[in-house]
Write a protein that binds this DNA or RNA. Structure first.
Lengths: 217, 217
DNA sequence: GTCTATAACCTGATAGAC
DNA sequence: GTCTATCAGGTTATAGAC
C-alpha cells in the first residue's frame, strides 16, 4: 500500500531548451533570435541545442507549429459544436480568446508576423480554410443575416478579441492605458463583445450603399 | 516665353535607397533584412548605403519613423476636428484607414511587430497618448455613453479597420478568401463599420456587468 | 559620388575532451 | 549527455581606386 510518489521537479534538458525557445522566439521573432540567447535563457550550453534539435530552423519549426495550434486551435471545437446556438458560440469565442491571450499576450503578434513570411508551411496541415468556411458557425451566421458576408462577423469577433493584444505595446508605451486598466478592459470585453456582435446581427444597414454603387454588381 | 520644363525622371540615389529600404524593411522586418537586399533592390552598390546613411540602424530609424507617422498620422486630424460630429469622425476613421491600408497592406503588421521591441523610441515624439486621451472624440464618446470606457470604442473602430489587414496573410494562404473577395469586403466595411459602431453606442448592455463589479470605481 | 575589395565582427554549427 | 574551443560562412561597415 506504500505509494511511490515521484515528483519530477527536474525538467529534462530537452524541455528546458524547448521552453527557453518558446520564450525567446515569441518575444523577439525568428530572425532577431540568436541561438545563444536561447541557450543562455535555458541556462545551458549552445552545443546542446544542436544536440537535441538539429538546427535553429528545426527548433523554430517545432515552436512555431505549437504556437499556431495554440492560436487557432481555440476556434475549431467552438465553431463546429452542433449542440450550441449562435450566441453561445460568440460568447465562447470571446471568452476563450481573451482568457488564453491574457496568459500569452504576445502570441498573436508573434504568430501573425512570422506567418507573413511563409504562411503555407505552418497552416496547410491544420486545414484552417475548410474548417472555417464549412463550419456550423458560418451556416448559423448566414441563416441569421443572409445579406451580409459571414466573414465580416467572424473577422469582427476575432478582431475585437485579438486586436487589443496586438496593440497592447502601443497602449502601454504611449500611456493610453496602464497594465491594470488593460486587464479591466479585457475582462469587460468578455461580456461586451457578445452584446456588440448580437447588435450587429440585428441592425439593418441603411440602403445608403445602394446609392454609392449604382453600377451592376 | 520659352518654358523650361524639366521632368525629373531620375530619382536621386539617396531616394532610391530610401525607397528600396521602405520596401524591404516593410516586407521582411528589421532583423531579417540584409543591407545587401536593399542595395540589390535599389540597383546599387552596398557601399552607398553607408555613404548616405551611416548604418543599417540609422536607415531603419528613418523608415520606421516615417511608417509610424503613416500609420498613426491618420488619426490626429480626424479625432480632434472640432467641426465634425461623432458619427462623421467614425466614418472618416474607417474610410481613411481602409483606403490607406489598401495601398499599404503590410504596414500595420510591420509597425506593430517592430514596435513591440522598442516602442518608446518611435512613439514618444508623436505624443500619441495625450493626443488620443485628450481628444474631442473621447469627449464625444463619453458624452454619448458615459457608462462605458471610450477606449473600448476606439479600439473597436481601429481594430475593425486594421485587423483584417493583419490577418490578410492567413485569409489568403488558407483560402478563406481570395484577394478579390478581400477587396470587396474591405470596401463594404467602409460603410458597415460606422453602422456597427453606432449600434454599439446605442445598445444598453445587460446589467450583468454591475453584478461582477460591485466595488466602487 | 560610385565602385571593388576587404576588414572586423557575429552567428550557427561542429569537433572532441570529459 | 554536457561542456569548451573552434570552424565556416555570412553580414555590416570601411578603405581606397576611379
Amino acid at each position: 500500500m506504500a505509494k511511490k510518489i515521484i515528483i519530477d521537479t527536474d525538467i529534462s534538458t530537452e524541455e528546458k531548451i524547448r521552453e527557453a525557445a518558446r520564450k525567446v522566439f515569441t518575444k523577439k521573432g525568428y530572425a532577431a533570435t540568436r541561438t545563444r540567447d536561447i541557450a543562455e535563457e535555458a541556462g545551458l550550453n549552445l552545443a546542446l541545442l544542436n544536440y537535441y534539435f538539429r538546427s535553429k530552423e528545426k527548433l523554430f519549426a517545432e515552436v512555431m507549429t505549437e504556437k499556431v495550434q495554440q492560436l487557432f486551435g481555440v476556434i475549431a471545437p467552438i465553431i463546429n459544436d452542433p449542440s450550441t446556438q449562435l450566441n453561445t458560440k460568440i460568447v465562447r469565442l470571446a471568452e476563450s480568446y481573451i482568457d488564453m491571450l491574457s496568459q500569452h499576450p504576445d502570441l498573436p503578434i508573434f504568430v501573425l508576423s512570422e506567418l507573413r513570411n511563409n504562411p503555407v508551411q505552418f497552416t496547410s496541415k491544420m486545414q484552417i480554410g475548410p474548417l472555417i468556411k464549412d463550419s456550423i458557425l458560418i451556416r448559423q451566421l448566414i441563416e441569421k443575416r443572409p445579406a451580409i458576408n459571414p466573414l465580416h462577423f467572424i473577422t469582427n469577433i476575432l478582431g475585437m478579441a485579438i486586436f487589443p493584444f496586438i496593440a497592447q505595446p502601443i497602449f502601454l508605451s504611449t500611456a493610453i492605458m496602464d497594465a491594470r486598466q488593460f486587464k479591466v478592459l479585457m475582462t469587460e470585453r468578455k461580456t461586451l463583445i457578445p452584446v456588440w456582435v448580437n447588435g450587429m446581427l440585428e441592425i439593418e444597414p441603411h440602403s445608403k450603399t445602394d446609392k454609392t454603387n449604382k453600377h451592376e454588381e
